[in-house]
Simulated assay, not measured.
Amino acid sequence: MQSDPLGEDTLEVVRAIAALHRQIHRAGLSLRESSDFSLFEDTVRATEDRYLMEDFSSRFFDLHGTSAFWIGAWGKDGEPVSVQAAKLEDLRDRSLGQLWQQQQRRMFSDPVSHVELGDNHAHDAFSMRGRIVYHGNLWLRKDARGQGLAEALTQLGFLISVLKWSPDYLYGLMAARNAMKGFGIRVGYRRFAPRGTHWITPPEHIRPDDWLVYSNRNDLQILAKTIVSEGPE
Rank of each mutant, 00 (worst) to 15 (best):
T201S: 06
W70D: 04
Q2I: 04
Y214M: 04
D77M: 02
V44P: 06
L170Y: 05
E12D: 03
A16F: 03
K181A: 13
H205R: 10
R45T: 08
T201L: 03
P167N: 07
R105C: 06
L88M: 09
Q147H: 15
P202Y: 02
A224P: 02
A122K: 02
G78P: 12
D119V: 14
E33G: 11
S35P: 11
L20F: 02
R131C: 03
A68P: 13
S109K: 13
V81N: 08
S161E: 05
E79L: 11
Q2G: 14
Y169N: 06
E204S: 13
L20K: 05
L117C: 05
R177T: 10
T66E: 14
Q101F: 11
A125T: 15
A152H: 11
A224C: 01
A125R: 12
V228H: 07
M128N: 09
D42M: 12
D49M: 06
I24L: 05
V115I: 15
R50N: 06
E233A: 13
G72N: 10
V81Y: 03
L31A: 08
R131H: 14
K225R: 14
M53R: 13
G182A: 07
V133R: 03
S113H: 13
S58E: 13
M128D: 09
T197N: 08
D4T: 07
Q84P: 12
G146F: 10
R191W: 00
M180Y: 09
R32K: 13
E41M: 02
K164C: 04
E233Q: 13
Y169M: 06
L138A: 07
Q103L: 14
L173S: 12
S161H: 09
L88N: 01
G172Y: 05
L117Y: 07
L138G: 05
G172P: 07
L6G: 10
D90N: 14
L20Y: 04
Y214E: 00
V133Q: 00
L149Y: 09
I17F: 00
L223R: 00
T197V: 15
D93W: 11
R131L: 10
Q221P: 01
Q104D: 11
G7D: 00
D93N: 15
L170G: 03
M180N: 09
A68Y: 04
F158Y: 15
Q2D: 10
E116H: 15
D9P: 00
G188P: 06
W139Y: 15
K164H: 13
R50T: 08
D93S: 14
W74I: 01
L29Q: 07
D110W: 09
W165T: 01
G28E: 01
Q2V: 01
G7N: 02
H25K: 14
D110Y: 11
E54R: 15
